[in-house]
C-alpha cells in the first residue's frame, strides 16, 4: 500500500515536472489566460451595462470551455506520449499496480490544470472594482471548474490510454467530451425515460450551470466524481490489458 502510494507520488511528480519544464506547458497556460481574458472583455463585460453576477456567470461560462479544451490538451500526452517515445515499456514493467500508474498520471494533470484554473482568479477579482459580487459565488464557480476539469482530465487520460499518437489521443478525448456535452441536445429529441437519462448525462448543461450561478448542487458533484472514477477505472483496465500482453 505504502509502495503504491509512493509510486503514485513519484509518477505524479515526474509528470508534473514534465509539464513545468517544457515551454509547451507555459505556452498553453498563457494561451488559455489570453483566451479567457479576451472572452471576459469582449463578451462578459461586453459593450452594454451588465449586472456583476451576470459578468461573473459569463466568466465561468467561457472558463468552462477553455478548461475543457486545456484538460484535453494536457492529458493527450499522458500515456500516448509514453507509447510514442517507447518509454511505456518502463512504465509497464514498473513494480506498481495499474491503478497507481493511472492515479499518478491523473494527479499530475489535475495539479497542472488546477494551477492553470487558479491563475485566472484575477478576472473575477476585477469585478470587485466596479461591481458587487459575493466571494462565495466565486468559490462556487471555481468548485465547478475543478469538478468539471477533473471529469475532463479523466476522460482525456482514458483517450490517451487508447491511442498511440498524441493527436489521436486528443481527438478521442475531445470526441468523448463533445459526446457528453451534446447529450442535452439528444435529450430534447428523445422521449422519456431516455430523455431524462441523457439530460442528466450532459457534462455542462445540467451540472455546471448551478456552479456558474453560485449554487453548489450535491448531485453535480456526485456526477463529476462518477465520470472521473469511471474513466479512471476504464483507463486502468486498458493499462492492465496492455501490460498483460
Amino acid at each position: 500500500m505504502t509502495r503504491a502510494l509512493t509510486g503514485v507520488l513519484v509518477i505524479a511528480r515526474r509528470d508534473l515536472a514534465a509539464y513545468l519544464n517544457s515551454a509547451w506547458g507555459w505556452v498553453m497556460v498563457a494561451a488559455v489566460l489570453f483566451v479567457n481574458g479576451l472572452m471576459f472583455n469582449a463578451y462578459a463585460l461586453g459593450d452594454r451595462p451588465r449586472y456583476s453576477h451576470e459578468v461573473l456567470e459569463l466568466f465561468f461560462y467561457f472558463s468552462s470551455g477553455t478548461t475543457m479544451i486545456a484538460a484535453v490538451l494536457i492529458t493527450m500526452r499522458l500515456i500516448a506520449e509514453e507509447r510514442q517515445t517507447g518509454t511505456d515499456v518502463l512504465l509497464e514493467g514498473a513494480p506498481l499496480p495499474d491503478g497507481a500508474i493511472v492515479a499518478g498520471k491523473y494527479l499530475s494533470a489535475m495539479a497542472f490544470l488546477s494551477g492553470l484554473i487558479l491563475m485566472s482568479v484575477y478576472m473575477p477579482a476585477l469585478i470587485f472594482v466596479n461591481g458587487k459580487i459575493g466571494v462565495s459565488h466565486i468559490l462556487a464557480g471555481y468548485a465547478g471548474l475543478f469538478a468539471l476539469g477533473s471529469a475532463v482530465v479523466a476522460i482525456g487520460t482514458f483517450g490517451s490510454s487508447l491511442a498511440r499518437s498524441q493527436v489521436v489521443a486528443a481527438v478521442l478525448g475531445g470526441a468523448l467530451v463533445v459526446a457528453l456535452l451534446i447529450c442535452w441536445l439528444l435529450a430534447r429529441v428523445t422521449s422519456p425515460p431516455f430523455a431524462g437519462v441523457l439530460e442528466y448525462m450532459s457534462l455542462f448543461d445540467r451540472h455546471f450551470r448551478p456552479f456558474m450561478e453560485g449554487r453548489i448542487q450535491t448531485d453535480g458533484l456526485v456526477y463529476y466524481a462518477t465520470i472521473t472514477l469511471l474513466m479512471l477505472y476504464a483507463t486502468t483496465r486498458v493499462i492492465s490489458w496492455r501490460r498483460w500482453r
Binding site: 453560485g214 449554487r215 450535491t218 448531485d219 456526477y223 469511471l230
Partner: peptide
C-alpha cells in the same frame, strides 16, 4: 466489469439526484 461499473453509476446518480442538496452561495 466496465458495463457493471457503468450500471452502478446510474443508481448512484439516481439517488444523488433524488436526495440532492443545494447550497446557494450567491452573495446577491
Amino acid at each position: 466489469c466496465l458495463a457493471l461499473a457503468i450500471s452502478l453509476a446510474f443508481p448512484v446518480n439516481f439517488l444523488a439526484s433524488r436526495h440532492s442538496r443545494g447550497f446557494d452561495l450567491r452573495g446577491i
